[in-house]
């Protein structure tokens, strides 16, 4: 069971003062929370990497947490920032290396869960942008496949992914 908000805020405040025991507990709790948080938002094979990236970010940016405020909205903002960053970089890699690769069937159930949860954030985007981000980033389709499935041209798919990711990054603090 993950600790409540009050406990996490107290642990983080103690960590900022240099309390290593509190910090170890906080990181374990944060790790569990992030695992659940991302499990609905990213393909399973990237889950551990992303959780670790956020923990490192938490460590590097721990001075930016104000102990007078709740901890989880701060952690969620950092998690979302890293998540959008991950989508961007993974998309760039995919454009370079996976243009003609078959998406495969592995992790289908997890991908469905990821897609469902991602919808909650993606619903802030225009339908055309959200659709192609889902097709290419969550389901792993190529640009050509996404174009065929969405009825958009390949260049429009690329433009919509670019614009959608840019807009997502602007929604990190706003999107509830």
């Amino acid at each position: 069971m993950i600790a409540d908000e009050k406990t996490l805020s107290r642990l983080m405040a103690a960590s900022q003062r240099g309390d290593k025991r509190a910090y170890a507990t906080l990181l374990e709790e944060a790790s569990r929370w992030l695992t659940r948080y991302f499990r609905r938002k990213i393909a399973p094979e990237h889950l551990d990497d992303l959780v670790q990236e956020v923990l490192v970010s938490l460590h590097r940016k721990r001075a930016s947490y104000d102990p007078a405020r709740p901890f989880l909205p701060w952690l969620a903002a950092i998690a979302r920032y890293r998540w959008v960053d991950h989508l961007r970089s993974a998309y760039r890699r995919q454009e370079q290396a996976l243009e003609h690769e078959d998406p495969g069937e592995e992790g289908g159930q997890e991908a469905v869960l990821a897609r469902m949860s991602l919808d909650r954030l993606l619903e802030n985007l225009p339908i055309g942008q959200a659709e192609v981000i889902e097709l290419v980033r969550i389901e792993g389709h190529s640009i050509a496949e996404a174009a065929a499935l969405s009825g958009q041209s390949e260049s429009l798919v690329k433009v919509n992914i670019h614009r959608g990711l840019k807009k997502l990054s602007a929604l990190i603090e706003k999107a509830e």
């Binding site: 930016s64 709740p70 909205p73 701060w74 969620a76 903002a77 603090e173 509830e176």
Partner: peptide, 8 residues
């Protein structure tokens, strides 16, 4: 500099 979901 101190982000938070819900900040406006």
């Amino acid at each position: 500099a101190g982000p938070r979901v819900g900040n406006r």
